[in-house]
Simulated scan of single mutants.
Amino acid sequence: MRIVFVGDVMGEIGMRAVKMYLPLIKAKFHPQVTIVNGENADNGRGIKATQFKAILQAGADVVTLGNHAWDKRDVNELLATNDNLLRPANYPGKNTPGQGMVIKKVNQQQLAIINLQGRALMNPLDDPFMIADQLLQQVPKETKIFVDFHAEATSEKGALAHYLDGRVDAVVGTHTHVQTNDAHVLPKGTAFLTDVGMSGSYDGILGVKASSSVQRFLTQQPTRYEIDDNGRPQINYCVLDLETHNHIQVGQINPDHPLDV
């Protein structure tokens, strides 16, 4: 089973990158399932119905979220009516809208897609390790399992991957917007990448205008971050082959790394 996973869609320029490049990536790699993290799609904070639908139209099968999951007013209805939109499963509360896991039938196989959020340097959600254990008990045998772990600390991402090694097929990190150079398979067979990177401006800083970020560091005063929607677009992704021996490779398309078809 082949999966393409695209990193955090950041603002309108990130949406343009997905619309432009995702069909080309799919044409090159022919994945059975395409997953996109869309939690920054609406001006960097959350997702609206228009962006969710546009990401699906560009070729995504499932859209995951993160710490900005609740930033838009209509997201509760979106989560309640779309099982292919996931929010982190470890948000607390019994009546939290939506779900953090979906199981998809892929030809003669099944794929469980799990969305979790870290707690180090982030909001104090329920324990993602404990919630992962609970979710795995609900997954039928012989099901492939992919985890989008939306977390700040690289150590927490690595810890969850090692904790789940051999029990899930892949753990890929999101949230920090910079693609890491550590795609590998852990000793018990789980494919791991600390962060897949983002889709957005190639010229900004983590997707925002460089000037606003620089100003904050120069003055130590609160500066409003502005999305760099006029920069050059980029998309970051990874390709996973979930077989007897799992495999992961990273990819990026930007002005310095054009798509190699």
Score class of each variant (00 low, 15 high):
V239N: 08
N236T: 05
S212W: 11
V178F: 03
S211L: 11
S199C: 07
V196Q: 05
K144H: 14
M130Y: 12
Y163M: 05
L160Q: 07
L135G: 03
A210Y: 10
D127Q: 01
V196R: 04
L160E: 07
T244Y: 11
Q179Y: 02
Q220S: 14
P128I: 06
L160F: 09
T190R: 03
D127Y: 02
D169K: 00
I227R: 07
D127W: 01
D148P: 04
K141M: 10
V185D: 01
V239S: 09
H175M: 03
V172N: 03
P187A: 01
N246W: 12
S211V: 13
Q221K: 15
V178L: 02
S201A: 00
T219N: 06
V172K: 01
T219W: 06
L160N: 08
A161H: 09
Q134Y: 07
L240C: 08
V239I: 15
L136A: 07
Q220R: 15
R119Y: 10
F149M: 13
Y163P: 06
N246I: 12
H177G: 02
G173W: 09
L242P: 09
M130S: 10
F217I: 08
E142G: 07
T244D: 15
V172G: 01
H150V: 01
V147N: 06
V171W: 07
Q249C: 13
E243M: 13
I145T: 08
Q220M: 13
L121I: 14
G173I: 10
V168K: 00
G231V: 04
E152V: 10
K209I: 05
G204N: 03
K144A: 12
H162C: 10
I131E: 11
I205G: 08
G197R: 00
Q220C: 11
V168C: 04
K188C: 00
P233R: 05
L136F: 09
L125E: 09
S213R: 14
Q234T: 05
H184P: 02
Q134D: 11
G189S: 06
V178H: 02
L164C: 06
Q138E: 12
T143E: 02
G204F: 01
V214M: 14
H150Q: 04
G207H: 00
L218G: 04
G166K: 06
H175Q: 05
K188H: 09
L218A: 12
